[in-house]
Amino acid sequence: MSFFGKNIKKIRGVKGLSQQAFAEVFDLKRATLGAYEEGRSEPKIDTIIKIANHFSISIGSMLTSELTVNELLRFKGDLTVAAEVVKKEEFTSVPCITEKNMKEYIQFYDKKNFVSDLPVLQLPINKDKVFRGYTVSSLEMTNHDKGLYPKDVVVGEFVPKEVIKKLNNGIVVLVLVEDALILRRLYIAKKEVVLRADHKNIEDKKYELKDIKELWRIRYVFFKRLPEFNDLLEEKMLFLEQEFTKLKNSL
C-alpha cells in the first residue's frame, strides 16, 4: 500500500481544505477521495499524476514516503486561493435516492459509506441540517393533473423519532418502514401513523410509530415539467377536503 492517501490528507490539512473542496478541484467524488485517504482504494495513475503535478511533488515522493509539513509548505500554494473560491460557492450535498438504488437504500440506509456513495444534489440550503433527495417513481401523490409525477425530485429534512408526534397532520413525508420507502401525507393518531396518498384510488397505509426507521419531511420539490400556477381553485378545494377529513377523524 502506498503513502498516497496519507499524503493527500496531510496536504488538505496544510492547505485548510475540506474533502469536498479538494475533490472538486481534481474532478473526484468526495467519497472516492475519502476511500483514498482511508486506504480502502488506490487511485488511477492519471489521478496521481494530476495531483502530484499540481503541487510540484514528485510521484515517487507521493507514493513511497510520508511527506512532512515542512516539505509541503515549500510546495506550490496556489490551490489555497482557488479552493477558497470553490468553498465560498459550495452548496450543500444532498444524497439522492433513485429508482435504481432504492432497494439497496432500504437495506443499507444506516451505513455511512453507502449513503456517501449515493448520487448527490448540490443545493443552496441549510448545511447544518440533514437532507435526503428522492426521485418520485409512482403516481400516488397525484390528484387529477396536479401533484408529484415520476421523475420529479423531492428533498426532505430528517425528523428524529421523538419529534414525529409533533408534526402537523397532512404534511408530505418520505418514510422508510419495514421494506418500503413511502412518499405520502402523514396523519398521526396516538401510537399509529397513517400514510395517505393524494390519489383517490389508493388505500391508506398504517404503521406503528415504533416501526418507522426514518422519516424525512419534504421541504423542496423540483418538477420535471413546469407546473400550472394560474389555477389555484383546485388546490384550495384539496386543502379544504383535507381539513374536513382531519376534523372528521378527530370526532
Rank of each mutant, 00 (worst) to 15 (best):
E90A: 13
F114S: 12
I48F: 03
K50I: 10
P119Q: 06
L118R: 01
E71P: 00
F75R: 14
L67N: 07
T98F: 03
A83E: 00
F108S: 09
K76S: 08
L79H: 01
M102V: 09
N70L: 12
T68C: 09
L79N: 00
L79C: 02
A52Q: 04
S65Y: 07
Y109T: 05
T98P: 03
K100M: 11
A82R: 14
F91W: 06
K88W: 03
I49S: 10
R74I: 03
T68H: 08
T68S: 15
K87W: 09
S93K: 14
V69G: 12
M62P: 00
H54P: 05
K100Y: 08
L72H: 09
E104N: 07
K76R: 13
T92W: 03
T64P: 01
Q107W: 05
I51K: 00
M62W: 01
N101S: 06
N113Y: 09
S61D: 15
S61I: 06
E90Y: 04
S116A: 14
D110P: 09
T47S: 11
I48C: 01
C96W: 02
P95K: 05
K100C: 04
S93M: 13
E104K: 11
E99D: 07
E71G: 08
D117K: 15
K103F: 05
E66P: 03
Q122R: 15
E71M: 13
H54I: 06
D78E: 04
K100D: 14
V85F: 04
I51G: 01
E90G: 11
T64A: 10
L73S: 08
A82L: 14
E90Q: 15
K87C: 03
M62D: 00
N70C: 10
T80L: 07
T92A: 11
E104G: 03
K76E: 04
K103V: 12
V86Y: 14
Q107L: 05
I57Y: 00
I57T: 06
V120N: 11
L79Y: 00
I59W: 00
T64Y: 11
V85Q: 14
K100S: 09
N113I: 15
L123I: 12
I51R: 01
V94N: 01
K87P: 01
I49D: 05
D110V: 06
V94E: 00
N53Y: 03
N53V: 08
P95T: 07
L63E: 09
I97F: 02
I48A: 03
D117E: 10
K50L: 15
E66W: 02
A82Q: 13
V85W: 02
A82K: 15
Q122E: 13
C96A: 14
T98W: 03
S61Q: 12
H54F: 14
K50Q: 12
S93D: 05
I59G: 01
S56E: 11
E90C: 08
Q107Y: 09
G77K: 10
A83K: 04
I51C: 07
M102H: 01
P119A: 10
I59D: 00
T64I: 11
S93A: 15
